[in-house]
Design a protein around this nucleic acid. Sequence first.
DNA 1: TCCTCACGTAAGCGTGTTTGTTACGTGATA
DNA 2: TATCACGTAACAAACACGCTTACGTGAGGA
Lengths: 153, 153
Amino acid sequence: MRPDRRLSRMLHVLIHLDRHGGRLTSDDIAQMLGTNPVVVRRSMAGLRERGYVESVKGHGGGWALTRPLSDITLLDVYMALGEPGLFALATSQDNPRCLVERAVTDRLDETLDQARELLLGRFAEITVAEVAGDFEHRFAALDDDERCASDAG
Amino acid sequence: MRPDRRLSRMLHVLIHLDRHGGRLTSDDIAQMLGTNPVVVRRSMAGLRERGYVESVKGHGGGWALTRPLSDITLLDVYMALGEPGLFALATSQDNPRCLVERAVTDRLDETLDQARELLLGRFAEITVAEVAGDFEHRFAALDDDERCASDAG
DNA sequence: TCCTCACGTAAGCGTGTTTGTTACGTGATA
DNA sequence: TATCACGTAACAAACACGCTTACGTGAGGA
């Protein structure tokens, strides 16, 4: 199955919006992500509905943050994307009458639920500002040449 | 993305093989799973290569266990399937030069790795015999009518 | 010997989800 | 009024599992 990369991409965008300060158009963002402005608008619609960003039409329009990154957790972004399925694994329901199958699915679902709980719990603990801090720390550690060579200066 | 149900199905099959005692043909198993014998052979090839089951051609042929369920963990079955990807989520590599993206992907990958470690660790702790025990326990708790109505008697 | 059974494998299509693309509409600004 | 930029619908591409068909091989029985 093709993996969902929207969470990764949206975090990337939020941090760039913060660093940029002003507005970025869907086209700007699409170029950063190597994709299409329509994909950007589609992915960011949920973030707008939840009030993390706003979009403005017309000249000088584009996308901007409406609150600090420290107020947005990875879980917030994940939920703004519609809480897509986390696992590429699922239990089968080929014959719900079969008690063997039910024992298997119950045991597997229980284990998957534990992993899901851990994952979403971690997402809830991490703010986007923290990830931005990871970047700042790395960027500060570079010497001047490396800073010029990187795309995030 | 379409989830992978092979792990669930293979556990189901292994427990039925154990309860049945003798051999089951790919056709028998396909009917249990509501699928096609070719799908069964393909999924079970890895289990055979690892020595958990054997297959015999010709009259009276089919599939049988080659070791007790207590010697097979969920992790063993997962690995026999070729260790398919666990998550429907992945990090993006749209622009590896971008330090922001790298900070995001590193943080996300780290979190996903934690969840993966938990999940595979749990898989390693659970034997197929344990899941079969779950079934036996439930089956013993049924009264006669319910046993007849279930498909696992 | 010949037939049937059952597995082994290759090849192609179906399907669902994200992603990519085109097209058209709407509102805001110069 | 022209242009910019978002909003949305519609459709194609890519990808992996699942399904189906087809053909080959080895084992056993008539």
